[in-house]
Amino acid sequence: MLDATDLTKSYPSASGPVPVLAGVSMRLSRGETVALTGESGSGKSTLLHLLAALDTPDSGSILLDGEEITGLGDRARARLRRDRFGIVFQALNLVPSLTVAQNIAFQSRLADRYEPDLCDTLTRRLGLSNLAHRLPEDLSGGQQQRVAIGRALAARPSVLFADEPTGNLDEDTADQVIDLMLDLAADTGTACLMVTHSPRLAARLGRQVHLSKGLLS
């Protein structure tokens, strides 16, 4: 479904471009769950950003269902994220001005795919029913991450990208969040690529890939 080949990416710096990815290739199939691990600064987040159409590679190719997405413009990439992807970040996931219920429904409304029943189900399963009318700033970190997962899945994405989704959470809360995320993804047939530092969490996903010095192993 998602097929990346020879991706390279470097960032400018005062002392010249700093290479982050040096020809990465990987494949993500429908319904598959993959953990992307690696040391700090290895390029995990960069790779996830490229695959999620948040950024563009310097070179290489990314095919989604056989369609090249690296050459797309800002508007087309935005449409892709809206219609096909769900993204969960480590922090600052939510729209601060919207309530929990509005945040969960937001992307599905953007994609014109709003299903009130699905949103209600997700809200209930995520244990957020009592918090539906609260603003994000009134929630704990774990609650906020649950809202972000619910929002990402409410639009029935093909791929769920999660970048250190439990990085700010304690171990127990992290386990609960990951369990929920994987259960819900399985229920909706969503593929999942998760960046994590934790070998324990990585082991719970179907496959693990390790990024080191800009290359996958």
Binding site: D74, R75, R81, R82, L92, N93, V95, S97, Q107
Partner: peptide, 15 residues
């Protein structure tokens, strides 16, 4: 930016 970035990430073009 922290308010705009999540909306952008969900597929609303910056323009």
């Amino acid at each position: 930016l922290p308010q705009v970035a999540p909306v952008w990430a969900q597929g609303m073009p910056v323009r």
